[in-house]
């Protein structure tokens, strides 16, 4: 039987935050956003570099080797994390869906590779395609259906 120890703790974070000074929450949020705005260009550049790496990794046809799919997963996860923070929400959604596809299928679902390619092309389209809102929504909806299809295949496998 495992022994459980309960250790009461003083919340040091609360103590450290209790002193005088600081700023209003609204000011803190605005200042943080202003700081983020200053680093938007290099962060968007990092997104574009991640997209280029994903495109290079998926350029050759055929099943993705484990190392390659891992690299794509990491770059897609990077785009997901940064996209929504810097106004590229749609790219972020597609990148999350791409992560999900890779994690789900690990290349075993019959449609996985085609679905991955569709996601990669969509990332570029949404980044540089200047699509009207209605068409962006259509792209996302189509990818949602594709992901659902691969989920079904993976569940049956």
């Amino acid at each position: 039987m495992s022994v459980v120890r309960f250790i009461p703790q003083v919340n040091r974070l609360a103590k450290a935050m209790a002193g005088p000074g600081g700023k209003k929450a609204s000011e803190a949020i605005a200042d943080a956003q202003a700081g983020l705005d200053t680093i938007a260009p290099p962060c968007v550049e990092a997104i574009d570099e991640a997209l280029l790496r994903i495109e290079a990794a998926t350029a050759a046809a055929g099943p993705l080797a484990e190392g390659r799919s891992e690299a794509i997963y990491r770059d897609a996860n990077r785009i997901f994390g940064l996209g929504g923070l810097f106004g590229l929400d749609d790219m972020g959604k597609v990148a999350w869906s791409l992560c999900e596809l890779i994690d789900l299928s690990a290349g075993t679902a019959p449609s996985a590779r085609a679905a991955i390619d569709a996601h990669v092309r969509s990332l570029r389209l949404l980044r540089f395609g200047a699509l009207p809102e209605v068409e962006r929504a259509a792209v996302l909806a189509g990818l949602d259906r594709l992901l659902a299809h691969v989920r079904g295949e993976a569940a049956e496998a």
């Binding site: 935050m17 600081g22 803190a28 605005a30 202003a34 200053t38 680093i39 923070l85």
Partner: peptide, 30 residues
């Protein structure tokens, strides 16, 4: 509501790009 992080010791652990994001956010918080 007042938020005071001036005396809080904070360790941020992330890669270079993620670090710049966290540093800007927590720097903005004071």
């Amino acid at each position: 509501a007042r938020i005071n992080l001036e005396q809080v010791s904070i360790l941020l652990l992330d890669g270079a790009v993620g670090m710049s994001v966290l540093a800007q956010i927590f720097g903005g918080f004071g």
